[in-house]
Simulated scan of single mutants.
Amino acid sequence: MNSVKKMACEILETMADGLKIQPRNVLSKLLMDEESDSVFRVNHYPPCPEVQPLNGNSNGNMIGFGEHTDPQIISVLRSNNTSGLQISLRDGSWISVPPDHNSFFINVGDSLQVMTNGRFRSVKHRVLSNREKARVSMIYFGGPPLSEKIAPLPSLMRGDQQSLYKEFTWFEYKRCAFNSRLAANRLIHFEKIAAS
């Protein structure tokens, strides 16, 4: 887990460089904190041979893990060479991410979306199981300490730009996520309503 945590930190520092955030470890230090609420999880999606093809889809895929966004700062995913990961486009359609057992897939989490005031967006995704082959995925979810305040970074707020989100702690967000449906937009509870 230490190697994937280190990779996640390097990615966050590269993102900070791109946004010209100082210090560059402002995000990665949250994962390195000894109180970090990071998790490593392995998911197994067994084949489902009883699934019948739908709408001409010869794979006969079914939902293995429902649509959602990751709540943490960043997620690093690697899987066996089996398809199944899909992301939702802005128009609501789904596209498959080609499997590549030599690559890592990086998801921006809801917390990073807030901390960048929407410059980086968490992407809704899901996993499909298929009829013939099992899918195994390993995911590192990089989370901040439970007491960490989540809000747009001051160095990203330019001029009279307003925060899109109310400040909250990671614990408050986790509690909200636990009490909501998987597919729900959990950030809506923390969005600031624009004055009319």
Rank of each mutant, 00 (worst) to 15 (best):
D17N: 09
Q72R: 11
F171L: 14
G56Y: 01
I188G: 07
S163R: 00
T169Y: 03
N107P: 02
D110A: 04
G56K: 07
E35I: 10
P53S: 14
A195T: 11
G18Y: 08
L27D: 08
N102F: 12
F171Q: 11
P98R: 11
V97M: 14
P71Q: 13
I106Y: 10
L27C: 06
E132W: 01
S58W: 00
A195Y: 00
V108I: 15
N57R: 11
F141Y: 15
K174T: 03
A195H: 08
L187Y: 08
M15D: 01
P49K: 06
S79R: 02
V26W: 00
A183L: 00
D100Y: 06
R119T: 10
R119K: 15
D160W: 01
R119M: 06
Q86S: 10
L30S: 12
E35T: 07
S3F: 03
K149F: 01
S129Y: 03
K124D: 07
Y165W: 11
S122D: 04
S3E: 04
V51H: 13
E148G: 07
I11E: 08
F105P: 02
I73D: 01
N59M: 06
I139R: 04
F105H: 05
R131Y: 08
A151H: 09
G118Q: 10
I73E: 08
D100E: 08
L153M: 05
V108Q: 02
R78M: 08
R121H: 11
L30R: 14
P99V: 08
R186W: 03
V4R: 08
N55P: 03
G143P: 05
S36K: 01
R181L: 13
R175D: 06
F104G: 12
D160K: 04
M62Y: 07
V42W: 12
S163Y: 00
K192T: 06
R135N: 09
V51A: 13
R121E: 11
H189L: 10
N179Y: 09
W170F: 14
N80V: 08
S122T: 03
K20Q: 13
N25F: 03
A183M: 07
R41V: 14
N25S: 12
L12C: 07
I74K: 02
S137N: 09
V123L: 06
A134D: 04
V97N: 05
S3V: 02
E132I: 05
R181P: 11
S155G: 11
S93A: 08
P71F: 14
D70F: 00
G64Y: 03
S38C: 13
I106W: 09
A183P: 08
V127G: 01
P49Y: 08
K29E: 11
L77M: 13
N59S: 06
Q22M: 13
M115E: 03
V108H: 13
S103N: 14
L89M: 14
P23R: 11
P144L: 00
S137Q: 12
V39G: 05
S129R: 12
L31Q: 14
L128Y: 13
V108E: 10
C48F: 05
M62R: 14
H101A: 15
Q113K: 04
L77Y: 00
S83K: 10
M115F: 00
A184N: 04
E35Q: 12
I87V: 15
M115L: 12
L156Y: 06
K149D: 03
L164H: 12
N59D: 09
R135Y: 02
D100Q: 09
P47K: 09
P47Y: 01
P53T: 10
